[in-house]
Amino acid sequence: MKLFVGLSVSLEKTANCVISEHGKIVREAQASELEELACWIGRLDGTIAVLGPEAGALSQWV
């Protein structure tokens, strides 16, 4: 299954949402540290088609 991952970055946390190729929300979470985010993404069941971080000054570390 193809997955689409969106990351909404703020100063305190990053909100993460995964949507299936059929438009259904598969998983939502919050991860603030890069290692935590990498683990969260690595545990997804499917193929990541697109990973889209929010465009802005706070998302450049991602």
Rank of each mutant, 00 (worst) to 15 (best):
A38H: 07
L44C: 07
D45K: 15
R27Y: 05
D45N: 15
C39E: 15
A15G: 13
S8T: 04
A31N: 07
G23C: 06
E36S: 14
E33M: 08
R43C: 12
V26P: 01
L37D: 03
K13Q: 15
C17L: 11
S10E: 13
L37P: 01
V9F: 02
L34Q: 12
K24N: 08
G23M: 05
A31F: 04
N16P: 00
Q30V: 07
V26E: 11
A38K: 14
L44W: 05
A29F: 01
E36Y: 01
W40M: 01
S20Y: 01
E36H: 10
S32I: 06
A38G: 03
L37W: 05
V9K: 03
E28S: 13
E35A: 13
G46T: 10
H22A: 11
Q30F: 08
S10W: 06
L11I: 04
V9Q: 04
L37Y: 05
A15P: 03
A29M: 00
A38I: 14
S8H: 14
G23R: 02
L44D: 08
V9L: 02
H22D: 12
G42C: 07
E36K: 10
W40F: 05
N16K: 06
G46L: 11
S10Q: 14
E35G: 10
A31H: 09
G23E: 04
E36N: 09
N16R: 08
R43K: 13
E35C: 07
V26Y: 01
A31K: 13
A31V: 02
L37Q: 10
A31I: 00
A31E: 12
G46V: 10
E28N: 08
E28F: 07
N16T: 10
T14E: 02
G42P: 07
S20V: 01
S8C: 03
R43E: 15
L44Q: 15
S32G: 15
E35H: 07
L37A: 06
S8F: 05
S20K: 00
